[in-house]
């Protein structure tokens, strides 16, 4: 376990280093610098600006500075929003994005588990087919289609929920649903197929034969074994929710990081784009690391049976 931990940790650090290095050199590869296409500035002002942002240092020095700043979690200044640093913007936007993401994740896991379990227990019956149709729809309908659809139906036509604000719980319902649809569908499919498989195992028959109430058979013997694959995809799910939040926050005008990110793309505010990408990459790589460790901890069979590297 410790050996695996160290191995995975080194790998994580390498991945982060690749991301940071690639983003840095990408920034350098863009022709011109952020001030070259601004309105005509006197040469002296440009020189001062470049000096202020340390753009006149040789590239290796810039690289080392950049890396040193990253180690201190300092993502540097934004260029469009001159007075604010990227850290401030992240501090402002992240709580909102995190709330939305967490709501979506909880919603997806709870509903996905329930739907998947019901589908597996009623295997090949109407409820199962209904759940599967819902799951395929959830996988095929992107958030940026579901979002406007919800806005149109629930917001504009039926006037049940506010269309695009971020004020109170009722305004979070639609974006949460739009964001949760894809992970919900993924979890439903996964839990269904693994439940169906576990239900055919001998130990389930044993549990039933010894007269255990059905609820206990499901909760104690089936679900515990069937839930493992769901843990493995928590990492990819977090990625999906995060990238999904870019469009969802934009559609519903939610003041989270996703909205800043899309704005920064449209403004070509390179440091901000790189900063947010990096911030999210660190977050996601960290989540994947934690999930991997959790998986090994939950299921001791892994790592014993399977040789590392496969």
């Amino acid at each position: 376990m410790l050996k695996y931990f160290i191995k995975r940790f080194v790998q994580m650090i390498l991945t982060l280093w690749v991301i940071a290095t690639v983003t840095f050199f990408m920034m350098k590869a863009i022709p011109g610098d952020p001030f070259s296409d601004e309105r005509k500035l006197p040469a002296q002002v440009v020189a001062n600006l470049r000096a202020h942002y340390h753009l006149d240092d040789p590239v290796p020095v810039q690289y080392l500075n950049y890396m040193a700043n990253l180690l201190r979690f300092d993502f540097g200044p934004s260029i469009k929003y001159e007075t604010r640093s990227i850290n401030e913007m992240i501090a402002e936007g992240f709580p909102v994005s995190a709330q939305l993401g967490a709501q979506a994740l909880v919603c997806a896991v709870v509903a996905g588990l329930l739907l998947g379990i019901v589908a597996a227990l009623r295997h090949n019956r109407p409820v199962d087919y209904l759940a599967m149709v819902l799951a395929v729809l959830g996988i095929s309908i992107p958030g940026f289609v579901l979002g406007p659809l919800l806005q149109k139906v629930l917001g504009v036509e039926w006037e049940l929920l506010p269309v695009a604000t971020w004020d109170g719980f009722s305004s979070t319902i639609m974006p949460t649903l739009a964001l949760a649809a894809l992970p919900l569908a993924t979890i439903t499919r996964l839990i269904r197929s693994s439940m169906v498989e576990v239900l055919t195992q001998d130990y389930i028959r044993t549990a039933r034969a010894k007269g255990l109430p059905p609820f206990l058979v499901i909760s104690r013997h089936t679900l515990r074994n069937a839930i493992l694959p769901v843990v493995t995809i928590l990492g990819p799910l977090a990625v999906g929710i995060l990238t999904g939040s870019f469009v969802i926050e934009n559609i519903f005008s939610i003041p989270g990081i996703g909205k800043y990110f899309v704005e920064s793309i449209n403004n070509r505010d390179y440091p901000l784009i790189m900063g947010i990408t990096l911030f999210y990459s660190v977050l996601l790589v960290g989540v994947n690391f934690a999930v991997d460790l959790a998986y090994r901890w939950i299921d001791p069979r892994i790592g014993l049976g399977k040789r590392e590297g496969n």
């Binding site: 790998q11 994580m12 390498l14 991945t15 982060l16 690749v18 991301i19 690639v22 983003t23 990408m26 990625v239 995060l242 990238t243 793309i265 784009i273 790189m274 990408t277 999210y280 990459s281 996601l284 790589v285 994947n288």
Partner: peptide
């Protein structure tokens, strides 16, 4: 393995 850690859509956006 190292490249695998890169978030797909973020890389593409970049």
């Amino acid at each position: 393995d190292v490249l695998w850690g890169l978030p797909y859509l973020l890389t593409v956006i970049l």
